[in-house]
Nucleic acid binder design. Structure first.
Length: 152
DNA sequence: TAGGCCATCTGGTCCT
DNA sequence: AGGACCAGATGGCCTA
C-alpha cells in the first residue's frame, strides 16, 4: 500500500495535465504567511477591524446611496435593483473577504491532504483541485483492487 | 515583458 | 430585507 502510494506520487509528479501542469515556482501569494492580504490592498488585518471601525475607504463618504456602475454595469434589463448604502456595500465587501478567506483555508487543508513530493512550492488552487481528483481516483481504484484480491 | 495566480471589489441572483 | 454565493473586472506580485 505504502509503496503504491509512493509510486502514485511519483507518477503524478511526472504526469502532464492538459494545460501544462507545471506549477513553476510560484511564490506563495499569501496564505502560508497566514495573512490573507499580502499588503497590496489593505494594510489592516484581513477584515476584522473594519466593521468595528466602520468605514475604511476615505474616498467613500458616509451613508450616501451606493449607486452602481461596475464592470457589467447595469444593462437595461436589470429587474429589481437593490439600492444599498455605502456602509452596506462595505459590509458586503467585508463579508466577501471573509468568505474568500474561509475558502482559502479549505484549499490549504486540501493541500495538506494530497500527496506531493516535487512541489516545493505551494500548489495553486486549480492544481490542488486537479491533484485531489487524481488522488481520489487512485485511492478508489486501489480500494476496489484490494476488495477483489483480499480473501473474504 | 507576458502570463499565471491571487486578492479585492462589485453587482446580480438565490435563499432565508 | 439582508446574507450567501457567484462570476466578471481590475490590479499587484512573481517567475520564466
Amino acid at each position: 500500500m505504502q509503496g503504491r502510494l509512493v509510486d502514485f506520487v511519483n507518477e503524478i509528479n511526472q504526469m502532464e495535465f492538459p494545460q501544462k501542469y507545471t506549477l513553476g515556482p510560484k511564490q506563495q501569494v499569501d496564505s502560508d504567511s497566514s495573512s490573507p492580504n499580502n499588503q497590496t490592498h489593505l494594510d489592516v488585518s484581513p477584515w476584522s477591524l473594519e466593521l468595528e471601525n466602520g468605514v475604511r475607504n476615505e474616498h467613500l463618504v458616509g451613508a450616501s446611496r451606493y449607486c452602481s456602475r461596475g464592470a457589467h454595469g447595469l444593462s437595461s434589463k436589470s429587474k429589481r435593483r437593490r439600492i444599498i448604502t455605502v456602509v452596506q456595500r462595505q459590509a458586503a465587501n467585508v463579508r466577501e473577504r471573509k468568505r474568500m478567506f474561509s475558502l482559502n483555508e479549505a484549499f490549504d487543508e486540501l493541500r495538506r491532504k494530497v500527496p506531493t513530493f516535487a512541489y516545493e512550492k505551494r500548489l495553486s488552487r486549480i492544481d490542488t483541485l486537479r491533484l485531489a481528483i487524481v488522488y481520489i481516483s487512485f485511492m478508489t481504484d486501489l480500494l476496489e483492487q484490494n476488495g477483489q484480491n483480499s480473501p473474504m
